[in-house]
């Protein structure tokens, strides 16, 4: 305490304090503008001169409005001077109305692009993967029907697995195209690797809305109480190594997974609320 007083008693400081009184603020009216000059100390205790310029306008309005314009200010504003008080009224930054273009227009531009590509000459520039038509796959008119048809095909093929001859015939129909090993007649379609995968994912729990700072160790600590796990995968950014907000936990037993979901869904962890559910196979999306 005494030390602080000593510092303050420096005569130079005292002079500065006495002489530091702010000049009074002024208001000047000049050809349609009101100029207000104020002096203030900023955060660094430096004197700052603030000049505000207002445009003074005259408008012709109805009597009632004119009468209201001359009302005496009241309440919190009773001590305000005429004109806007800079403490309560601020001119904000410029904002613009963003006009949205309609959706039909978007479609049109895409079509134009397609037409241009077609005009280039090559007929097969765009080819649908479903029906081989000359449009984008995503815009295939047969999209839904083809997918449905594909499923029926699957069943047809899955039925006669035991009779290689029939399946071979099927394959010949598809021509000389490359068939991945998993889809060749030798592979068991129904209970093939995909089925195993699905079984596996049955015990996989997806935990989402994890905070950025979650680490592998944190996640393991979080799920360990529920039971043995075969794999704990935390999605991380390749470059920064930060958590991307979700994780997959492979439980050895289904019960443990269910327990984990019951506990963790809606659980507050590191100021965020987690969501947990069975992991869904990618193809259902």
């Amino acid at each position: 305490m005494p030390a602080a007083e000593e510092v303050k008693s420096s005569w130079a400081d005292e002079v500065e304090l006495e002489g530091g009184a702010l000049p009074p603020s002024t208001e000047v009216y000049e050809n349609g503008f009101k100029i207000v000059t104020e002096y203030k100390y900023n955060e660094d205790d430096k004197k700052v001169k603030i000049v505000r310029t207002y445009k003074v306008e005259k408008r012709i309005v109805s009597k009632t409005i004119a009468k209201r314009k001359c009302l005496k200010k009241f309440g919190e504003a009773s001590n305000d001077k005429p004109g806007p008080n800079p403490a309560t009224t601020i001119v904000a930054e410029d904002v613009y109305m963003q006009f949205l273009t309609s959706k039909e227009e978007d479609n049109k531009t895409e079509d134009d692009a397609l037409d241009k590509l077609k005009a280039l000459g090559d007929k097969n520039v765009v080819k649908c993967r479903n029906c081989n038509g000359d449009h984008w796959t995503s815009k295939c008119p047969w999209k839904d029907t083809i997918i449905a048809g594909g499923k029926i095909d699957d069943k047809k093929v899955g039925g006669p697995v035991g009779t290689p001859g029939a399946v071979g015939g099927d394959n010949k129909q598809t021509g000389s195209k490359y068939v991945p090993p998993s889809l060749r007649d030798g592979a068991k379609r129904g209970e093939g690797p995909s089925a195993i995968r699905r079984d596996d994912s049955y015990f996989t729990v997806r935990i989402a809305n994890l905070s950025d700072s979650t680490t592998d160790a944190d996640l393991e600590d979080l799920v360990r109480p529920f039971g043995p796990t075969s794999k704990v995968f935390l999605a991380k950014d390749k470059i920064t190594g930060q958590c991307k907000g979700f994780a997959y936990v492979h439980f050895k037993f289904r019960n443990d997974g269910a327990k984990a979901i019951a506990m963790l869904n809606g659980y507050g962890y590191d100021h965020l609320i987690l969501t947990a559910d069975w992991s869904k196979p990618a193809n259902t999306n």
Partner: peptide
């Protein structure tokens, strides 16, 4: 509060 809508000047508050 009540304000002049033209220039944002505060006319007063109802306390």
């Amino acid at each position: 509060n009540v304000w002049y809508s033209l220039n944002g000047e505060r006319l007063g508050s109802f306390n």
